[in-house]
Design a protein around this nucleic acid. Structure first.
Lengths: 155, 155
DNA sequence: GATGAAAGCCATATTGG
DNA sequence: CCAATATGGCTTTCATC
């Protein structure tokens, strides 16, 4: 028998989550209409999903170009000293331009997503990453973004 | 002289955007308090930011593990036939598990972010990607996510 | 866990400075 | 860009099943 019984995420919950991923500002009233439940019930379910951590938060989707950060890059990272205590993510978190940090299996230890205003700034950020993280970097520049952050689906 | 004068995104706009990235459900009343402007003004600015496309939308941030998609991977993609018309993104968009698709400079043509329920499903998705995209793949499994989707900043 | 009702708060439009 | 207003809709709580 399993150690714990995690509360289930049923189809209604998944419908609610999908609707909120599609539009994070959907009202509870609308949500109720979409999933066929009264507002109060939906409200209660969303609260539960938030408390369980299934819904971690809500955010605006921004156009990085319009915001003055037209240059994005994927940066693979390898620590200089594989034996050293690995607080690389904590240190890289101090570099504001690092939007995401994934710990990965394979040749490299981490993959980062970085957004900068100019190539010159990217150069500086890469230098920061190398020094504050004590890592080597391999950088792949993003030319365009056909799509990004689509809703999760288990098809 | 420049061909056009794109409307400026000033510091107040950036503060508004930052607040909405931090919490996409912030009310206009709260936004006003945070940036020190009346509700009506903030409302007007958010509308303008949405119309200009600076704010592209709002979305819920979900816990993929809790949603039953615990396995994420970064997939680098190389078309078999570099001369063929490049509608690879359109074709890859049909695979629901592909969350993001970036067109990149370098050895490979695209980098994908993929979320699946199980290793077996990842195997199937990779097969789908190769066949529907007519591409070769190189896959890096994500072990954990120290952080992801942090607010944009031009430091 | 689901529901319906009731209360207060908020979004939104409008007018005018 | 700000202030003021008005109304309809929404969030939130609570008692109930």
């Amino acid at each position: 028998m399993p150690a714990a019984t995690p509360p289930e995420v049923d189809d209604v919950d998944r419908a609610i989550v999908a609707a909120l991923v599609a539009d994070g500002r959907t009202s509870f009233t609308d949500l109720g209409r979409q999933v066929g439940l009264p507002t109060s019930t939906v409200h209660q379910r969303v609260r539960r999903l938030e408390q369980r951590g299934v819904l971690k938060g809500y955010t605006a989707v921004v156009d990085h170009e319009a915001l003055g950060l037209p240059l994005s890059a994927i940066v693979s990272v390898t620590p200089f000293d594989p034996a050293a205590p690995d607080d690389v993510p904590e240190r890289l978190a101090r570099v504001a331009e690092v939007e995401s940090c994934w710990s990965v299996a394979g040749e490299e230890s981490y993959v980062l997503l970085v957004r900068t205003a100019t190539p010159g700034r990217l150069e500086e950020v890469l230098a920061e990453i190398r020094t504050t993280g004590s890592v080597a970097t391999r950088t792949t520049v993003i030319l365009s973004t056909p799509f990004e952050g689509r809703p999760p689906s288990r098809s």
